[in-house]
């Protein structure tokens, strides 16, 4: 195996992470927010795997496996919430969520 362009890999992870972050902040559609969260998780996983590869350890990959489990659990509950929200408001736009205000 050749050497891995580590900086480039990290840069990619950072790019993905920030893209996800922008998505979470800008999108008002809750589905997109959830997807952006997934992107962020994935980017973190990417960083971990690259770090693991860089250090020549399996731990990075192990972390990714756990990240997958976390993402799954989170998405399950998140989607259930979205479905309830859709039942209640008939919309997936977070703007309809306005009951809680100061």
């Amino acid at each position: 195996m050749s050497e891995l362009p580590l900086e480039a890999g990290l840069l990619l992870a950072a790019l993905l992470f920030l893209t996800g972050l922008v998505g979470v902040i800008t999108r008002r559609n809750i589905l997109f927010m959830l997807m952006s969260i997934e992107i962020m998780f994935n980017a973190a996983g990417l960083a971990f795997v690259l770090a693991g590869a860089h250090n020549g350890q399996a731990d990075g990959q192990v972390m990714l496996i756990f990240i997958l489990a976390m993402a799954a659990a989170e998405v399950a509950v998140g989607l259930a919430l979205i479905i309830q929200m859709h039942r209640k408001y008939n919309s997936v736009d977070t703007d309809v969520l306005s009951e809680l205000r100061d």
């Binding site: 997934e38 795997v49 990959q61 990714l64 997958l68 799954a72 989607l79």
Partner: peptide
């Protein structure tokens, strides 16, 4: 980058299961 196992898992779990849930 030398991580074939998680490469497969990424597809199986992430693409294959989580996103299908979406």
């Amino acid at each position: 980058s030398g991580a074939p196992f998680v490469a497969a898992l990424e597809v199986i779990v992430y693409a294959g299961a989580i996103l299908v849930l979406f």
